[in-house]
Design a binder for these strands. Structure first.
Lengths: 197, 197
DNA sequence: GCTTGAATTGAACCTATGTTCAGTTAATTG
DNA sequence: CAATTAACTGAACATAGGTTCAATTCAAGC
C-alpha cells in the first residue's frame, strides 16, 4: 500500500494537528509518541513528517497558533471605557474561550517546559502580551480609584490562574451552564479586586 | 567499582527522592529518565532499584507523601470559630506552604495524568480531602451569611486555582516577601467570596 | 488515457529507555 | 580479623522512540 484513496493534505494536516492536540492534552507531550498520533489519524508514523519537520514543531506551532487565536479574539471584543466593565468582559471572555478549546489551552499551559528555548521565547512573548492586556485593565481601574489592589502584577497572575482553572473541571453538559460559569467567575474576579458589584 | 565509600541507604534514599522531585518538576515525569535521576545523585541507574520498585512508584510515593504532609500541616493549624478568619487562615497557609515546597506541589499538580489508575485513585482521594476542607469553610460562611457565593463547589476550585498559581511565579528573594504575598492572596480570596475585609 | 506530482507505506536506522542481575567492594558484626 | 550483609557497578536485554527514504499508489491536468 502507499497513497490512500481519498487522501488529501487539506484533510490529513488538520487531522494530525487535532489528534496531536488531544493526545498532548490527555497524556502530555513527552508521553505521546509519533506512532500514537499517526495511529489516531489512521496513518503510518512516517507520513506525519509531510506535515511537520519534527515532533517539537508540532507542539510549538500548536501553542503559537492557539495564543495568536486567543489574542485575536481578545482584540475583537468591543472596546469599553469603564475599567470595571472591561474586567468583567475580560473575565467572561477568558472563561468562555477556555471552555470552548480546553485541549489547546491545557497544552499551552502545561507544555511550556517542553519547548526548546527559541520556541519558548516566542510563545512566552505571546503569553505576556495576553497577560499585559489584563494588567492594563487592572492598572486603569486602580488609577481611577475603582479597584483596591496593592500589586497589579500579582493580581494579574492570580486572576489568570483562577480563571484558567475552569479547564480543570468544566465539562460540557454538566451541572452549570457555560453562561452560569462565566458569570460566577466574572463576579469573583471583580470582587477579588475590590470592584463594586 | 562497586559499593562506594561512605554509602548509606539513609543518605542515598532521600537524595534519590529529592533529585527525582526536582527533575520531575522541571521537565515532567515522562521526560525524565532513570539515568538522569541516577546521574544527579552520582550513582548508576541500577542502584535506583534498591530504593523503588519502579519509576511509577517513585512518582506515586512522592505525590502521596506530599499530600499527606499537606493534610497533616493543615490539620495542625489552630482551630478558629469564625469562617472569615478560617478562610484567611487557609489562604495564608496554602500560599505559604506552596511557596516552601514548590517542586513537590508542582509535581502533585501536573503529573496526575501520569499515574496508573490505582495510584491515581489514592492521590485523588487525598486531594479531594484537602479541597473538602476549603469547601467546608465556604459552606459555613455562606450559611452564616458572611460570604456571598452562588456555588461553594465552584468557588472552592476557583480559589484553589488562584492560590496555587503562586508557584508559577514566586521565587525566593524576589520583589515581594513571602509574608506580603500571603497577605495579598488572602485578601483577594476573602474579597472574592464577598467577605467584609 | 498518460503523465506528472502529491500522499503514503513499510522497513530500516540509531539512540534511548526501564529494568534485571551477576559480580564487586565497603561497612558491620561477632 | 573473618564472615556476613549492605550498597553499588557495569553490562546486558528487550522494547520503544524519533526520523529517514526508496518504493508505491492515487489524484489531477492536459
Amino acid at each position: 500500500m502507499a497513497r490512500k484513496t481519498g487522501s488529501h493534505s487539506e484533510i490529513t494536516g488538520p487531522r494530525i494537528r487535532a489528534a496531536a492536540e488531544r493526545l498532548f492534552a490527555r497524556h502530555g507531550y513527552a508521553a505521546v509518541s509519533m506512532r500514537q498520533i499517526a495511529a489516531e489519524v489512521g496513518v503510518q508514523a512516517g507520513a506525519l513528517y509531510l506535515y511537520t519537520p519534527d515532533k517539537q514543531s508540532l507542539l510549538a506551532d500548536m501553542m503559537r497558533s492557539h495564543l495568536e487565536d486567543l489574542l485575536e479574539a481578545l482584540a475583537a471584543l468591543p472596546a469599553l471605557p469603564d475599567p470595571v466593565a472591561r474586567l468583567a468582559q475580560f473575565a467572561r471572555f477568558h472563561v468562555g474561550y477556555h471552555i470552548t478549546r480546553p485541549d489547546a489551552v491545557f497544552v499551552a499551559y502545561m507544555e511550556l517546559r517542553n519547548l526548546e528555548p527559541a520556541h519558548f521565547a516566542t510563545v512566552e512573548a505571546l503569553r505576556r502580551r495576553y497577560e499585559d492586556a489584563l494588567e492594563a485593565i487592572l492598572q486603569a481601574g486602580k488609577s481611577a480609584g475603582l479597584f483596591s489592589l496593592p500589586d497589579p502584577k500579582l493580581a494579574t497572575l492570580a486572576l489568570i490562574a483562577m480563571l484558567t482553572g475552569v479547564t480543570n473541571w468544566y465539562r460540557e453538559g454538566g451541572r452549570l451552564s457555560r453562561s452560569d460559569v462565566e458569570a460566577i467567575y466574572a463576579d469573583m474576579a471583580l470582587k477579588s479586586v475590590g470592584a463594586a458589584v
